[in-house]
């Protein structure tokens, strides 16, 4: 069962795993996850729906949240986002 996984890894680091989810879930969960974090906190985001990546990039561009790292391996995306 596709399950959203949101974890507080301590020291301002969070993990959001929305692999298996399609639009619009990854972008909505990312927005909600960032809203629960404090400025400066980092989110490790894992997803596998390519079009969500385009929307999340635009979303961060608007909010000012910074995408520090973008990794991609066999259809899976792992991004690090820092809340502004």
């Amino acid at each position: 069962m596709a399950q959203v996984k949101f974890e507080d890894k301590g020291n301002g680091n969070f993990l959001l795993d929305v692999c298996g989810f399609v639009c619009p879930h990854p972008q909505i969960y990312t927005k909600k996850a960032i809203a629960k974090m404090k400025p400066g906190d980092k989110l490790e985001l894992m997803f596998d729906n390519p079009s969500s990546g385009e929307s999340i990039t635009s979303m961060c561009d608007s909010t000012g949240d910074e995408i520090l790292e973008k990794k991609q391996e066999s259809g899976k995306f792992i991004w690090i986002i820092q809340k502004v």
Binding site: C23, P24, Q27, I28, K31, S51, S55, S58, S62
Partner: peptide, 23 residues
């Protein structure tokens, strides 16, 4: 469509859901 992640659903959905106007 694949290159542009061109989906009409996201045109209005992403505006309302996450404030993204790209589509």
């Amino acid at each position: 469509l694949q290159y542009g992640r061109f989906c009409f659903a996201s045109a209005f959905r992403d505006l309302f859901a996450v404030g993204v106007p790209r589509m």
